[in-house]
Design a binder for these strands. Structure first.
Length: 104
DNA sequence: AAGGTGACTGGCG
DNA sequence: TCGCCAGCCACCT
C-alpha cells in the first residue's frame, strides 16, 4: 500500500497558489513564495512540490526556477509546458515577459 | 531536539 | 553569462 502523508499547512498553501496559475503561464519557486508572503521560502516551495503525491491535482509543471529553466529536469515537465504552447529558447529557457504569471 | 536535505536564490568573482 | 557559495525555510530523522 502507498502510505501518502498528509500535506502540511504550508504545502497546502503552496498548492493553492500553484492551482491559480493559468495554463500557458509559469511562475518561479520564489514567485510562489512571494505570493505566500514569504519571499525567502523558495526552497521550501520546491520541497512541497517534491512531496506532492499523485492524486492531488496541482499543475506543478508550471513552476520553474528563476532563470525560466526546469529545475526538476524531467522530460515530462517540458512536454506538459510545450503542450500548453509555452516556448523554450535555444538555451532551454522560458521568457518571463511572455509566459511569466503575476510575479517574475 | 539537533543535524541533514532539497524541484531555490541573490550576490560576487 | 556562468559557476560557486552562503543564506534561507520547512520537514524528516
Amino acid at each position: 500500500m502507498q502510505k501518502r502523508k498528509r500535506p502540511s499547512i504550508f504545502a497546502e498553501r503552496v498548492y493553492d497558489v500553484v492551482r491559480c496559475v493559468p495554463r500557458g503561464r509559469v511562475v518561479s519557486y520564489g514567485g510562489v513564495a512571494a505570493l505566500l508572503g514569504q519571499p525567502r521560502a523558495a526552497r521550501a516551495v520546491g520541497g512541497a512540490l517534491g512531496a506532492l503525491d499523485d492524486g492531488v491535482r496541482v499543475p506543478w509543471w508550471r513552476v520553474v526556477n528563476r532563470n525560466g529553466e526546469i529545475s526538476h529536469r524531467s522530460r515530462l515537465q517540458r512536454l506538459l509546458l510545450q503542450r500548453e504552447d509555452v516556448r523554450f529558447d535555444a538555451r532551454g529557457r522560458i521568457d518571463w515577459r511572455r509566459f511569466g504569471w503575476m510575479v517574475s
